[in-house]
Design a protein around this nucleic acid. Structure first.
Lengths: 249, 249
DNA sequence: CGAGCGTTTGAGATGTGTCAACTCAAGTGG
DNA sequence: CCACTTGAGTTGACACATCTCAAACGCTCG
């Protein structure tokens, strides 16, 4: 039930980032070399470290090489809304860096390796590495799609549906970069983080997870999540995989 | 109180689109000519007409020349979430057209003039009209910002705050394209539409508007809205104008 | 061993949704 | 010119999803 739903793809040893860009577009050798360099540099952030600050200058884009991070926004009274999770292979701050100033925060959820690079001034990168430029455009398209999904979750779905929808979305995203193994996905999110992503209280998020486990829909074990009843969870999520496919391929 | 908060700008006769792109970036004469053509063509849609269909092919981008339109997403059971309002000068479908397939719907709220043009294949437009390319990038940045705001509204704000936040956001956006006159802004949204934008029920949206009027914060007259107590509405909205400035300039 | 973090559970409070009815203004058609 | 329809706004009573508060549990780690 579980893995049957997921498209099998040849298992390579490419990094998540490479893997993702390969999916997005066909790269030239030159692009690949460019990527190599990109893959080798980078900084390791400890869990909890903030690496983008709302309102501060932001000229670099950040490529997540490993680990989970999140983009979020905060109100003066402390209320926090997580906008999107940035997973391995994702690019953070692409559009923000256009204006050289961040309009959101970003922090590492787990220990994360992140490579920063100068933001592509409109054209320069597109000229030097047209396909990478295209990959960046598609990355923006994915961001937009994820935010659309987020709005639908927050605005029009019940707590139970929101949790299912988020789980399925993360599942597809992780699968696209080869991070689903043996029908389990890494799941480092605390219920507190999830509550700030889904616009719910911590307590209510917990109740949804308890129910999902009780009814045998999911299993959670040592920060690994398996979807036992993919069909049921997907149905509750009203998830539309076509949307994601149209971004990916 | 009202207009004091709004930056005065020389009143020109430029179209909203031109006005906006001028704000965004400095255009060359060639770019301006390109714009001219763009401004002259276009289709007029009646209120309610859908012009982008979720799941269907989408190779063109749509430039709103006049009127209000909205992008939205729907669940199979009819629940609807408005993602963003597209106002004069806005560009719709920029990132969606990258993947040649729409992942949302778009409809005209009022009678609207909309110009369609071929989506800029990554690079082609950037090469021919680099500054326009940059303007497009910034348009994407604005979209992202608006979606971030939307997530914060939906996830972490009360009904009253959501309404205030939306009003202030629309005010700033309309002011940026010269559509605020005499301290009033056009406000063609029905409470039903607002409820689908803010993730509330129609009835509850109504209650918020009744209260805002009762306490003298806003005035609503013949589809024109004035903010009588700008300070109070802004405070309730927790609106951060810096974000918008950082996109605009 | 205590401290801290994440999770779990219960009970009561409340913001928002639902249902239903009514008003008002603007068509529309006979 | 009137009867009718339709869309938008308004209001009240009640239901319910979710929040808040509070307490306990089980880890892990120093």
């Amino acid at each position: 039930m579980n893995e049957a739903q997921v498209i099998e793809r040849p298992r390579t040893h490419a990094s998540p980032l490479r893997r993702k860009l390969d999916l997005l577009t066909s790269l030239t050798d030159e692009d690949r070399n460019f990527l190599e360099k990109l893959e080798n540099g980078g900084t390791t952030y400890r869990a909890g470290t903030q690496y983008i600050f709302d309102g501060q200058a932001l000229s670099k884009i950040h490529v997540i090489r490993s680990g989970w991070t999140m983009c979020y926004s905060e109100l003066d009274d402390g209320r926090r809304q997580i906008l999107t999770f940035a997973l391995p292979g994702d690019i953070v701050g692409l559009h923000a860096s256009i204006r050289r100033r961040a309009t959101f925060n970003a922090s590492a959820i787990t220990r994360s390796q992140i490579t920063s690079m100068e933001a592509p001034g409109s054209g320069s990168l597109y000229a030097a590495h047209p396909r990478l430029g295209e990959a960046f455009s598609r990355s923006m398209a994915q961001d937009a799609l994820l935010l659309n999904n987020q709005a639908m979750r927050l605005g029009r779905m019940t707590a139970y549906e929101r949790v299912c929808h988020l789980i399925v979305e993360l599942w597809y995203r992780l699968d696209a970069v080869g991070l689903i193994e043996d029908g389990r996905m890494p799941f480092p999110l605390t219920q507190s983080v999830i509550s700030d992503a889904l616009g719910l209280s911590l307590v209510h998020v917990n109740r949804q997870f308890v129910q999902l486990r009780r009814e045998g829909s999911i299993r959670l074990d040592r920060r690994q999540l398996s979807i036992l009843d993919f069909e049921k969870v997907c149905a509750a999520a009203h998830y539309n995989p076509d949307h994601y496919e149209s971004i990916r391929r």
